[in-house]
Design a protein around this nucleic acid. Structure first.
Lengths: 204, 204
DNA sequence: TGTACATCAGTGAACGCGCGTTCACTGATGTAC
DNA sequence: TGTACATCAGTGAACGCGCGTTCACTGATGTAC
C-alpha cells in the first residue's frame, strides 16, 4: 500500500528488523541504528516513519497484540465445542504465541514499555485480555453460583501461570531447567487448576 | 570486616547503590557510573572491588538468592506444622520476597544475566529452588501413589504462577490492573491448585 | 507524448551524551624497626 | 614513641564507542499541463 519511492515499504521492513533483533538480543539489545542497518538504510531514515526508538518498539508491540488477540480469538472459537475445551484452547494459544512470535512477545511483555503512553496500544492490549476473560466468564457459568470465584480472578490465575511458564521455562532463563516441555507443564498445570475449581472430574 | 582505608566498605555500599538504582529504574536503567556516583566515588574505584558492571549485578543477584533461600527455608520451617501449611508458607514467602526486595528480585530474574557464567551464583540459585522442591516432595507424599504428579512438576507450577503474579500484577506492568492484591490472587490460585491435586477439601 | 514542477523518502555529516574501561598517580592508612 | 617505608583504595583525566536525534540536502517518483 505505502509501496513506494525508494525502498518500498520501509516502515514494515523496520518493524521486521526490530523483531529479529529483539528476539535475538532481547528488548534491551535492540537499537534503532542496528534496525536501520538491518533494513539497509540510514538511521535518520527511520524518522520518516517513526517518532523515534520508542515509537518503533511500540509499533512492534502493537502488531504483537493484534496477532495475539486474533490467535486467542481463533482458539476460543466462540466457546465451541464446549466452554471447557475453548478455555483450554486459549491457554494453549498463549504458549503457542510466545513460542512462535518471541520478538513480539518480548516487545509486549519484557520491553518495559508503558501501555498508557500509546492509547491505541492500550486498546488492543485490552482486547487481547478480554478474550481470555470472556472464556473464563462463560466457563464459570458451569460452577455452582455460591462457590464461583470471580471470572476476572481465575483468568488472572491462568494468565499468570502461562506467563510464568514462558518466562521461567521457555527461555534459557534462571537455570530453571526442567524435564518437562513448557507445553506439557502448562497443560498439566491448567488441568490441575480446573480440577480444583470442580470443572474437571477428579480422575480425568 | 573490609572496613577500611578511605571509604569503609565501598564494596557493600556499591551493592546497595546498585540495588536502589535497579529497583527505581529497572535492571536496564542501572549503570556502573551512576552506582559509583551514588556511593560518592569515581567510576574507576568500582574496579577495585568488581571486575566490571556485570560482576556488580551478579553480586547483587547472589545476595538476592542468599536472602531468598533463607526466607524460603524459614517459611518452610522444616515442614512444620504440616506439609501443607509449610508448602503454602513458602508460596507466600516468594511474593513477600518480591515485594520487600524488588531490587534483588529484578537483578535475579529480570536482568538477563546468565547463571552459568558465575558458578557460585548458579549454586545459590539452585539452593533456593531446592527448598520449594523439597516442600513439594514431602507434600506429594500425601497423595495416593498412583496419581502423584512428579514433585518437580508441581513445584514448577507454583513457581510459575508466583512469578507470573509478580511480573503481571505487582509491577505497573502491561495494563494488568486487577481488583485483587497480588497476595490475595496468589493465595487463591494456590488454594485452587492444591484442591485440584486433592490436597484440600473441595469446600474448604 | 513530452516537459516543468512539486513532493517527499532516504542521505550523509554532524552533534552532544553517557557509557564502560584504562592508567599513571596520590595520599591516607597500616606496619617494621 | 617516632620515623621510614610499603600498601593499596580511590582519583582524575582520558579513551573509543555507539547511541538517539537534527538538519540541510538530493534525487527518484508522481503529477499537471
Amino acid at each position: 500500500m505505502k509501496q513506494g519511492y525508494h525502498h518500498g515499504n520501509l516502515r514494515q521492513a523496520l518493524v521486521e528488523a526490530a523483531l529479529k533483533l529483539i528476539s535475538e538480543h532481547g528488548p534491551t539489545g535492540f537499537t534503532l541504528s542496528e534496525a536501520a542497518k538491518a533494513a539497509d538504510v540510514t538511521p535518520a531514515a527511520v524518522y520518516r516513519h517513526f517518532a523515534g526508538r520508542d515509537d518503533l518498539i511500540a509499533e512492534v508491540a502493537r502488531q504483537g497484540y493484534d496477532i495475539f488477540a486474533a490467535l486467542m480469538e481463533f482458539a476460543y472459537n466462540g466457546g465451541k465445542p464446549s466452554a471447557l475445551a475453548a478455555f483450554e484452547a486459549t491457554g494453549r494459544a498463549y504458549l503457542a504465541f510466545a513460542r512462535k512470535y518471541p520478538g513480539h512477545y518480548m516487545a509486549m511483555f519484557e520491553s518495559g514499555l508503558i501501555l498508557n503512553t500509546h492509547p491505541d496500544l492500550a486498546l488492543v492490549a485490552q482486547k487481547a485480555r478480554n478474550v481470555l476473560e470472556r472464556a473464563a466468564e462463560s466457563l464459570s457459568q458451569h460452577l455452582p453460583e455460591g462457590k464461583r470465584p470471580p471470572a476476572s480472578m481465575f483468568s488472572a490465575h491462568i494468565w499468570a501461570m502461562s506467563h510464568g511458564v514462558v518466562e521461567l521455562f521457555m527461555r534459557g532463563a534462571p537455570g530453571a531447567k526442567s524435564p518437562f516441555s513448557p507445553e506439557d507443564l502448562l497443560e498439566a498445570g491448567i488441568g490441575i487448576y480446573l480440577r480444583g475449581l470442580g470443572l474437571l472430574r477428579p480422575d480425568s
